[in-house]
Design a protein around this nucleic acid. Structure first.
Lengths: 139, 139
DNA sequence: CCCAAATCAAGAATTATTCTCAAATTGCAC
DNA sequence: GTGCAATTTGAGAATAATTCTTGATTTGGG
């Protein structure tokens, strides 16, 4: 992320990092931070979350039903670009191996000439654990 | 879509059908319809678009940058479930062949135990035409 | 044609988001 | 450290988006 390092950026990243499996609306983040007395204003939260998303630190979803936009932290070991999968039940984000991501990308390119944007795509579904456990859809 | 058949449903579907390559916010649709004097109220548009989305007639995206939710008509020849790809430049929606969709789904299931939801996933990228033409990203 | 159920619309109410601008903070140059 | 220009912040006003309420209208089966 470019620009100055400010306490407010850190507050937001820390908040998301505390809840790596959950996604939040901007408003929820602002409310949660303000409630705990963090020194950050609503407008700053609205300003920073989209910027953190653009630089890849957060990932944005829109609810399957409903109209709210949700943000969640992306914790990536891998440096190469890859797709992400999100479990609609538990909320976890999964990383598609780079090799599999690349194979998919190549397939779409070969077949349709379509150049997929790994960064901005999220594949929704249900993860292994939740499939065995059953449960309610949260997203 | 369940429920009564009303003129208002038809107005909305027609509007999207006239613009198969474009996506709109709910507000844009309401404004456009009202402006052309269509007999439909804003609240009806807000009520119907999510329902048309749930039943698969429309597809919902969230902007790559920005926070608006966009809706676009899905014109599908294929009955089997498949993934959709959306070109960020021209806006067109593409259908991933059922066989390729199934192969991807199976791969993710075998590799991660992740059961992908074809209906609610959209793969963003740039289509063949736009790659050769160059151009500005619209979404 | 009748009627109950479903749907609609106007606009009020609420909620979400953006904007404004003075004050505070940041980090570089010295 | 200190000074300073550029950047960032936040309070709250302004705006925009969405939902809700309620009485009127429409729908389709009988």
């Amino acid at each position: 992320m470019s620009g100055y390092n400010t306490e407010q950026k850190k507050l937001i990243i820390d908040f998301f990092s505390e809840n790596p499996e959950r996604s939040f609306t901007i408003d929820q983040v602002a409310a949660a931070l303000c409630e705990r007395g963090a020194p950050i204003g609503k407008s700053t939260v609205y300003r920073l979350i989209p910027r953190l998303t653009e630089c890849g630190m957060l990932k944005k979803f829109s609810e399957v039903s409903g109209r709210k936009n949700l943000y969640q932290i992306v914790i990536c070991e891998h440096r190469c670009e890859h797709f992400h999968m999100k479990c609609k039940i538990c909320g976890k984000l999964f990383h598609m191996d780079c090799a599999i991501s690349a194979a998919l990308t190549e397939k779409l390119l070969a077949e349709y000439g379509f150049s997929a944007d790994k960064e901005n795509t999220v594949i929704f579904g249900v993860c292994l654990d939740c499939r065995s456990r059953g449960g309610e859809q949260s997203l």
